[in-house]
Design a protein around this nucleic acid. Structure first.
Length: 439
RNA sequence: GGGGGCGUGGUGUAGUGGUCUAACAUGUGGCCCUGUCAAGGCCAAGAUCGCGGGUUCAAAUCCCGUCGCUCCCGCCA
């Protein structure tokens, strides 16, 4: 017998059906038992007259909430039933997976345990439609990203996550034992996507894990997260990269809105708006002017940088004056950027780089990269880096590398701002942080 | 790494020097109820108040240490 999804039951009135799902509630009365069964598509009431099958009644009485069940019964229309005006009259029931009692917590209760406890039992928390929706949105989002890339002649790469040497700064790398030597977990696919430019791939993307050994205790940091990276060749400046991002993101938002807009509104109270392009752009110098006019004072040690408060203030300013959730902050000082960002021809103190803020949160960093070997090596030295550990990387630029640029985006951070999630721990399937390595 | 906050039955909270032999909700177990539907009613079990030390006649409550969680900052996506 084929399984019927709960949402399709109205089309099966009068028929015998098989339904599979979880026992959300059991109302066990003297002569009747009512089981509320839940599958991915909805809830249905299953009614059982105890005297009709006393043995089955006993089995049902022993069921713990959230047990996984297969039931067979007849669908009948019944106006009295508040849940959809129909119910299933139970004929057969199979306990596929008994739920122990009591549950660590009831995911469908009005009050929930704090998040750390729920993370211990993440799969129970994920039984809530709201939480599954977040991962469904992620699925749609990634699919839209890929569709857009593929429509624009991109090649997908998967770069190694085990590295023999520190890549960028080396500060926030996890090290691990690798046979007789030490290896590191990649903190970004940066170098390898640039290698694809040297390889002549012209346009590449990668969605993959990224590891950061930063003991950051905030609502927006993880030690392992999914990085969305992209790199394109033959650009004239970082502006070309920004133009690509804004159109790409607008496309992705539109796809998510079509598919999940209603659910997002229902569960998170957020009216998902497809951002208008182009996104506002502020040079770092202009951003400082704006902050000054807002009376936001940056700590003096933040010279050339933005702190999270400044990012939020800018985000609000852009929302108020341009009605856009996004803003590019461009032309950051070389002093606060990595060595491989290209410098402005007319101002060697500034890089051809940008951050993308979404609702005041940093979700993306990008730049035109320096593709000229000698210049790149010199910039690395200016940063006090020794060339030897990065020689493999520098070699990418020795035999004809085109001008190029790209960006890295935090997938969960994007989901966070899409649905106004209070913490990144909700935006990810399983959170990994300095003190969270399980389940 | 720096700073703030919190830690009470399974879970969420109340209690912030004595009336705490720790309360309420929810969950769990039992009984009752002609079909319930956020079901309802009755009963029961369940907490050495994170841990260790101290102050006091008296500590869940104050102090110190410690562990855990959390928020902010640093760092970043």
């Amino acid at each position: 017998m084929q399984r019927t999804l709960i949402k399709d039951l109205p089309n099966h009135i009068g028929e015998e059906v098989k339904v599979q799902g979880w026992l959300q509630t059991l109302r066990d009365q003297k002569s009747m038992q009512f089981l509320i069964l839940r599958d991915k598509t909805g809830l249905v009431q299953v009614a059982h007259w105890k005297k009709g099958n006393p043995k089955l009644a006993e089995t049902i009485s022993a069921l713990g909430t959230e047990s996984a069940l297969t039931i067979i019964g007849k669908v009948v229309a019944n106006e009295v039933v508040r849940l959809g005006g129909l119910e299933i009259q139970l004929e057969e029931l199979k306990v596929e997976g008994l739920a122990e009692t009591p549950l660590p917590f009831d995911p469908f209760n009005e009050v929930l345990p704090d998040q750390d406890f729920r993370l211990d039992w993440r799969y129970l928390d994920l039984r809530r439609e709201r939480n599954r929706l977040i991962i469904e949105v992620q699925t749609t989002l990634e699919a839209a990203m890929r569709t857009y890339w593929l429509d624009h002649d991109f090649i997908e790469i998967h770069s190694p996550k085990i590295l023999g040497a520190a890549s960028e700064s080396g500060a926030e790398l996890f090290s691990l034992k690798y046979f007789e030597t030490t290896a590191y977990l990649a903190q970004s696919p940066q170098f390898y996507k640039q290698m694809a430019m040297a390889a002549g791939f012209e346009r590449v993307f990668e969605i993959g894990p990224v590891f950061r050994a930063d003991p950051s205790f905030t609502s927006r940091h993880m030690t392992e997260f999914t990085g969305v990276d992209m790199e394109i060749s033959w650009i004239e400046s970082h502006e070309d990269v920004m133009v690509f991002i804004e159109n790409w993101l607008a496309y992705c938002y539109a796809e998510v809105k079509v598919k999940h807009g209603e659910q997002i509104k229902q569960h998170f109270g957020v009216e998902l708006t497809v951002p208008t392009v182009p996104f506002p752009r502020l040079t770092m110098a202009e951003a400082y002017e704006v902050l000054k006019s807002l009376d936001y004072s940056l700590p003096p040690e933040q010279k050339g940088d933005l702190d999270p408060g400044a990012e939020r203030a800018l985000g609000k300013y852009i929302k108020d004056s341009y009605d856009n959730d996004f803003v590019f902050v461009t032309d950051w000082a070389f002093s606060v950027r990595p060595f491989y960002h290209m410098l402005h021809e007319d101002n060697p103190l500034l890089t051809k780089s940008f951050d993308l803020l979404g609702k005041g949160l940093e979700i993306t960093t990008g730049a035109q990269r320096e593709h000229r070997y000698e210049v790149l090596a010199s910039q690395a030295q200016q940063k006090g880096l020794s060339l030897e550990p990065i020689q493999d990387y520098l070699n990418f630029f020795r035999y004809g590398c085109p001008p190029h640029g790209g960006f890295g985006l935090g997938l969960s951070r994007l989901l966070m701002i899409m649905m106004d999630l209070p913490t990144i721990r909700e935006a990810v399937y399983l959170f990994r942080g300095p003190n969270r390595l399980r389940p």
